[in-house]
């Protein structure tokens, strides 16, 4: 069985780079830099898990999450939302749109890896 595939969605190159550094040894990674691109990449790549930023241009993470949940490719895929501290208070909206869990920036590599493994290594 090949590596599990994770879709990283973030408009911040710094955050994408950081997530890649933490995850690339254990997982295959695909990327999107805004919400619309995320939907296209998700449909084509059918990831095993999505790490989804909340605040992005064109379409925010909550809307992306809702659309992914309505899609054939990601209707049961774990979606972990990546928030800032201030956005964490709004995560009720994230769950209402179908997210599986969330992690607030800044996070430690061990925390992200453990959350991801929790959903992928069943």
């Amino acid at each position: 069985m090949g590596q599990a595939k994770i879709l990283l969605v973030d408009d911040s190159k710094t955050t994408l780079f950081m997530e890649e550094m933490i995850l690339k040894a254990d997982y295959a990674l695909v990327r999107a830099s805004d919400g619309e691109e995320a939907l296209v990449v998700a449909a084509a790549e059918r990831p095993d898990l999505v790490l989804l930023d909340v605040v992005m241009p064109k379409m925010d993470g909550f809307e992306v999450c809702r659309r992914l949940r309505d899609s054939e490719a990601c209707k049961e895929t774990p979606i972990i939302m990546v928030t800032t501290r201030g956005e964490a208070e709004n995560m009720e909206k994230g769950y209402a749109n179908g997210c599986s869990d969330y992690i607030a920036k800044p996070f430690k590599s061990l925390e992200l890896l453990t959350k991801v493994k929790n959903y992928l290594e069943q």
Partner: peptide, 9 residues
């Protein structure tokens, strides 16, 4: 939050 989780782990 995984519907497929079977409790094996």
């Amino acid at each position: 939050i995984l519907a497929a989780f079977d409790g094996a782990r």
